[in-house]
């Protein structure tokens, strides 16, 4: 992939590099990223929230319709529920791509239209499906050992509960890591249309090297707001999700600017 002919990223002149590190540095950078995110949201908050409602409704409907009908009480049911979870994640990925497109347009001050949410059905559909199949596949596979241990180990076994907790915790850590590694897949796909899924995933992993902690810190900084969202029975999460997604887009913008 050539970094000069991308659709969104452009060189931001006179940017010097500060090689300092540490929590204070992370805080300062994340504050800057979130400021950029808030600014991009100011005039498009309604559209952003509308897009979040559509995505959440689609995820809820698909999970309820397909995931809710299968419960992993036996091995076959458990494996089937994982397959369904994977398929739903792949489909939701197409909408997720549209949402990323919407937030990127906000970030780069381009026209923001609600129909952009469905652009994943028109462009790069195969690459989106392939990317999400790999990313969601890894996430689901990481959670399989914990679920299998909970199902298959005998109830009387002394080490059952600690083992199940350990496997689930390890799986969860793996899921967070894989989410961070492949966090830029849709941004890259949008920025470099026509790239193969493998290229996009490799480039995402390469770009995130050295920046995973920062993205993790940014996501962690939303925990207090999410707690507030919980207090509002999840309703405030509509705006919090918009803020978080806009921060992701601002993170990508900052990252691409730092490379040019």
């Amino acid at each position: 992939m050539n970094t000069t002919d991308n659709r969104y990223s452009r060189p931001d002149a006179n940017r010097s590099v500060h090689p300092d590190r540490g929590v204070y540095f992370l805080h300062r950078v994340s504050t800057g990223i979130k400021a950029g995110a808030r600014f991009s949201l100011l005039t498009h908050l309604g559209t952003a929230c509308g897009a979040n409602v559509v995505c959440a409704a689609a995820a809820f409907l698909l999970t309820t319709l397909f995931g809710g009908s299968v419960y992993g009480s036996d091995l076959a049911g458990l494996l089937l529920s994982f397959v369904i979870e994977w398929l739903v994640a792949v489909f939701i990925g197409i909408l997720e791509y549209g949402r990323v497109c919407l937030y990127m347009n906000m970030q780069y001050a381009q026209p923001v239209l609600m129909q952009d949410l469905f652009c994943g059905f028109r462009e790069n559909t195969n690459q989106i499906i392939q990317c999400e199949a790999v990313a969601a596949g890894i996430r689901v596979l990481l959670l399989v050992p914990g679920a299998l241990a909970a199902l298959l180990l005998p109830d009387g076994m002394a080490a059952r509960t600690p083992l199940v907790i350990l496997l689930y915790a390890a799986g969860l850590c793996g899921v967070i890591y894989s989410r961070l590694v492949f966090a830029l897949r849709y941004y890259l796909l949008l920025d470099y249309p026509g790239s193969s899924a493998a290229d996009v995933l490799k480039k995402s992993a390469r770009l995130m090297k050295g920046n995973r902690i920062l993205l993790f810190y940014i996501h962690l900084s939303f925990v207090p707001l999410s707690a507030l969202g919980l207090l509002s029975f999840g309703i405030a999460n509509l705006w919090i999700t918009a803020y978080r997604c806009a921060s992701d887009a601002a993170f990508y913008r900052g990252l691409m600017a730092s490379r040019q």
Partner: peptide, 9 residues
């Protein structure tokens, strides 16, 4: 590594 200046800060 992303820097402070590159984040509109």
């Amino acid at each position: 590594m992303i820097t402070q200046e590159q984040t509109l800060h």
